[in-house]
Design a protein around this nucleic acid. Structure first.
Length: 372
DNA sequence: ATGTCC
């Protein structure tokens, strides 16, 4: 890899619309000291300063602000004991209650079993949170690669649970405390500041994964069934990697790893979710894949455009026949399927770039966002 | 994204 320069790559075809501001953010972030590779994935869209849907590899230092506040945010997939063949939409939707209240299952004990020390944010363990976070019941629409799906334990007739959530107040507190003390700059590799941040970052990653587990436990309990976790991957984190012969820090901001087996890439809440398998990970992609469809409209634009055309009630049913439980009207508009890009285009770009192959497609049945 | 800015 060339030293002192940063390669900027955008994995997107001409049929994939990418907002200009997002590309500008990608190029701007690429000028940070130490930056060697900046990869925009097909779901690239503007973030706060730096873009979302991107991977950044830096030599000699790491940037906590690039990981952002939701350290460890990611997606888990569970197979439930329920059959999707006799869908009980109303019954299941009715049973999804109490999920926004604190979990009474013993957070400290649960975290201890996962090797995580207790902390002041543990009351939020098992809650989904806001923004683009969700828990979704899904069924298999199509199996593209039977052998790989069988290997994963996928059963065509089963109901699945996809959980997208993160470290809630914990990651937020870690980033805020860090920025208050050290600002937005890079932390030199090997420094005490870097070690301190990384320790807390790792704790938040584990906490976020445990959070997704507890969310699944609570939902499975609501549905009076049990489940098995098939996979769980984060798309907001930083790790030390060797990339094209150079040691450095790979930041993923809304970018799934292509180094940890199959990846779930959800579309919008009214679109299919793809289960893909990374092709042999390539350094040129920053060992990363897209993490979703990517926003097409900002949250405020989304409200402005859709409030004129749809009632809140309209948005609780999707084109795919799924039901959306979201008792926060603003959030319903902000997270409407229309606000997101076409997931098919994003996936096609990954396939065309030879970064991934499709294993299966999942159809949304019920999406849970928030219920008062 | 965030016990979310009022």
């Amino acid at each position: 890899m060339t030293h002192e320069t940063c390669e900027v790559r955008l994995v997107a075809s001409t049929s994939n619309w990418i907002e200009g501001a997002a590309v500008q953010q990608l190029e701007k972030t690429a000028t940070l000291p130490g930056m060697r590779l900046a990869v925009g994935l097909p779901d690239l869209h503007p973030g706060k300063g730096s873009p979302i849907g991107a991977a950044f590899f830096a030599e000699g230092c790491l940037y906590p602000a690039l990981v952002g506040n939701d350290i460890g945010c990611g997606i888990g997939l569970w197979q439930t004991g329920l059959s999707a063949r006799n869908r009980k939409l109303e019954t299941w939707a009715n049973r999804l209650r109490g999920l926004d209240r604190p979990w009474d299952g013993g957070s400290a004990q649960f975290l201890a079993t996962r090797g995580i020390a207790p902390g002041p944010q543990d009351h939020a363990l098992g809650t989904i949170g806001g923004g683009n976070h969700f828990a979704e019941l899904q069924q298999i629409e199509n199996v593209a690669h039977p052998a790989a799906c069988e290997e994963l334990g996928l059963q065509p007739g089963a109901l699945y649970l996809c959980v997208h959530s993160g470290s809630r107040g914990l990651g937020e507190a870690i980033l805020r405390e860090h920025v208050d003390r050290h600002g937005f700059g890079g932390l030199p590799e090997g420094s005490a500041e870097a070690a301190a941040y990384l320790a807390r970052h790792d704790q938040a990653r584990h906490w976020a994964s445990a959070n997704r587990e507890v969310i699944a436990v609570r939902i499975l309990e609501c549905l009076r069934t049990e489940g098995t976790r098939l996979l769980d991957l984060s798309h907001n984190w930083v790790e030390r990697v060797d990339l094209a012969g150079t040691s450095g820090w790979l930041h993923r901001k809304g970018a799934a790893p292509s180094t940890q087996g199959p990846v779930v890439i959800p579309g919008s809440r009214g679109a299919f979710t793809y289960l893909v398998r990374p092709l042999p990970p390539s350094a040129k992609s920053g060992y990363s894949l897209a993490h979703g469809a990517g926003r097409k409209w900002s949250r405020s634009d989304s409200r402005g455009r859709l409030e004129k055309r749809f009632t809140a009630r309209d948005l609780t049913r999707t084109e795919l026949g799924s039901q959306v439980i979201c008792e926060d009207k603003e959030l319903l508009y902000e997270e409407a399927p229309q606000a997101y890009k076409n997931i098919n285009v994003v996936i096609q770009d990954l396939v065309d770039a030879e970064l991934a192959e499709v294993l299966a497609i999942l159809r949304p049945v019920i999406t849970y966002k928030v219920r008062r």
